[in-house]
């Protein structure tokens, strides 16, 4: 269970998150929507521990642990996964090697046996196949020269391999073709279980058709101004954010 209470954060002297309250029970998928610049990516970064952001108030607990005082890698090992809105390129770093190193770091910390190259490749190939990705993605350098859509698929592949307990997907559906949209949804749906929860940041109702969320939250200027069921997303698709924001003001 993820519990966010009164979370505020700034970058430099600019306050971006202004008191967020949000609870995601285990097994649930919550969508976060909201206009550009409202703080959605910031929320994802703060939850995963990016150091540029300073938390100025509030608490975050994840399965009982105080997330805010953990290093980013400790959060990852505890099961927090962030699919980046703009995945980062690592020149010269082989994708398969990167994935295996990450997976083994997580497995080691969880007391599981590490995978050797052969075992890993077998596993990775099975996942690429399931996600309808080409194997040569594994041979290339991490995100280098990947198309926008390939980068997003690579995030989904990493998520599938690392099997997180909390997946934060930051616009993983943006820039994807219609088939790929389904891949993302399938990637998340495959992980669904009583122990898995997800925060899905998106601008599009389409993804939510495949990935029916338990709750939808609207973020505006660093605050959640409205929460509702899946029908809220459909409503927004019709009417936009303007009236909601006016209402909240």
């Amino acid at each position: 269970m993820l519990e966010i209470r009164g979370l505020s954060a700034c970058i430099g002297d600019k306050e971006i998150l202004k008191g967020i309250d949000l609870t995601v029970p285990q097994g649930e998928i919550h969508a976060i929507m909201g206009p550009n610049g409202s703080g959605k990516s910031t929320l994802g970064y703060v939850l995963s521990g990016r150091e540029d952001y300073t938390v100025t108030g509030g608490t975050v607990t994840f399965n009982g642990a105080n997330l805010l005082e953990m290093e980013p890698e400790a959060r990852a090992i505890a099961g927090v996964f962030l699919a980046f809105q703009a995945p980062i390129e690592l020149p010269g770093v082989n994708n398969a090697n990167f994935l295996r190193t990450a997976l083994n770091a997580v497995r080691r910390a969880r007391g599981e046996a590490e995978l050797d190259a052969v075992q890993f490749l077998k596993l990775a190939r099975a996942e690429t196949k399931r996600l309808h990705m080409r194997d040569d993605m594994l041979k290339r350098n991490v995100n280098v020269g990947f198309s926008g859509g390939e980068k997003k698929r690579n995030e989904v592949l990493q998520m599938a391999l690392l099997r997180p307990k909390l997946a934060i997907l930051d616009e993983t559906d943006s820039g994807l073709d219609i088939d790929a949209l389904k891949i993302v949804a399938d990637g998340v749906n495959a992980l669904r279980s009583a122990e898995f929860s997800a925060l899905v940041i998106t601008h599009h109702q389409r993804l939510l058709d495949h990935l029916v969320p338990h709750r939808v939250h609207v973020l505006s200027q660093g605050r959640i101004i409205r929460s509702g069921g899946p029908e809220l997303a459909k409503e927004l698709e019709q009417s936009g954010y303007a009236s909601l924001i006016a209402e909240a003001a």
């Binding site: 690592l90 190193t101 990450a102």
Partner: peptide, 29 residues
């Protein structure tokens, strides 16, 4: 070595030292 590269690696569970090692080895490949 950009901060965001290190953060990306750490977000996947690598320690900072491992992340630098990986990026440096990639650079020297």
């Amino acid at each position: 070595i950009a901060e965001d590269q290190l953060f990306y690696c750490r977000q996947r569970g690598l320690s900072e030292e491992d992340a630098v090692g990986l990026i440096v080895n990639g650079f020297c490949k």
